[in-house]
Simulated scan of single mutants.
Amino acid sequence: MCGRYATARLTWEQIVAMSTLTTLGIPPEPLREAYNVAPTQMAPIIASDREQHRCTLARFGLVPQWFRKPLEELKFATFNAKSEEVTEKASYRGPVKSQRCLIPVQHFYEWKGKGKPYAIGNKDETPMFFAGLWTNWAGMSKGEIVEFDSFTIMTTAANDFMQQIHKRMPVILQAEDYETWLTGETDETLAVAGQYPSQLMQAYPVGPAVGNVRNQGSELAASVGEAI
């Protein structure tokens, strides 16, 4: 699964350039540096309704549009969605049809068993896009009316590389599949939600401080051992 990742120093300008979506506007507010994005935190995404795309900050952890209780009563986890199950699960079968997103990531973290955390990304250290689903939700939170976008990261079975660390991994999209993921029919999009090439990836151990969401500094991404 994937519950922690880093956008590091990515800017909206870099995210838009990565996407190759020339019609995207760039939000006026700059992004904060983020080295330990965790569920319930706000993070950048490119959201699409299959016709229009937009940059937005969204809550990590999708809130289903049909959820009508106060936000603090949302007890089930929605930060990851298994690609094999999204057309069946009530939280995801609506969004997978027309509310898909690109999630910009510099690297992500995964724990090998209950042991060492690893930072995982591209060998050439370029950022990547995860495939995701999003919603816009309005309701009550702690007695106040709120409205925000939210998202979940799609996951799939681990490729050969990731099997060294975990049995599952995020759906990482290749550049030629961005447009299909955002605008295609459901069957088309799920067809590109496959395994990212192992030869493009690397992982290196990082310190245990990444396990605490209060730790957010760039030192979290420092290697404490050799890459694999």
Rank of each mutant, 00 (worst) to 15 (best):
P127D: 04
W137M: 13
E125A: 13
Q199Y: 12
V210H: 02
S198C: 11
P127L: 07
L133T: 11
M169A: 03
E125W: 14
A158G: 10
A193P: 12
T152V: 04
N212L: 13
D177C: 11
S218M: 11
H166T: 04
G194L: 01
I153C: 13
R168K: 11
I145H: 10
G184A: 00
T180I: 13
A191P: 03
K142W: 06
M162E: 04
A193V: 10
E144G: 03
T126P: 08
Y178E: 07
A131M: 01
W137G: 09
A157W: 12
G121R: 06
V206C: 06
L200M: 15
G211C: 07
D177S: 10
G217E: 10
T180K: 13
Q174D: 03
Q174A: 08
E144K: 10
D187V: 15
A157M: 15
I153N: 11
P205N: 01
M140Y: 03
A193G: 08
E147P: 09
N122H: 04
L200P: 14
E144W: 00
Q202M: 00
W134M: 03
A191E: 11
V171A: 05
P197N: 02
E179T: 10
A158I: 01
N136C: 10
A138Y: 03
E176I: 12
Y178D: 07
M201N: 08
E185G: 14
V171C: 04
M169G: 04
G211N: 13
G132K: 09
M169L: 14
G207N: 04
R214I: 14
P208F: 03
L173P: 01
E188L: 15
G211K: 06
E147D: 14
D149M: 15
G143D: 15
N159A: 06
D160H: 07
A175E: 14
V171D: 05
N215T: 05
W134E: 06
W134P: 12
K123F: 00
M201T: 00
M162K: 01
S150P: 08
Q202T: 00
A209L: 14
E176H: 14
G121W: 02
V146A: 10
V192Y: 07
G207S: 12
M169V: 08
W137E: 07
D177M: 02
T180A: 04
R168S: 12
Q164H: 11
G139H: 01
S218C: 03
T152S: 04
D160T: 01
M201S: 09
G132N: 13
P127M: 11
P127W: 05
Q199M: 09
A193E: 06
D187Q: 13
M201K: 06
E188I: 03
Q195H: 05
D177L: 04
L173D: 02
F151N: 07
Q202P: 00
G194Q: 02
M154R: 07
A175Y: 00
G207I: 08
N136D: 10
L182S: 14
P205G: 05
T156R: 05
G194P: 01
D149S: 13
Q202F: 00
A157V: 15
G139Y: 02
V210S: 12
I172F: 02
A203S: 07
R168V: 08
Q199S: 15
G207W: 01
N159C: 13
M201Q: 12
S218K: 13
V146T: 10
A138Q: 15
T186Y: 07
T152E: 06
E176L: 11
E188N: 03
T156V: 06
N212V: 12
T156I: 09
A138I: 08
P205C: 05
P170Y: 03
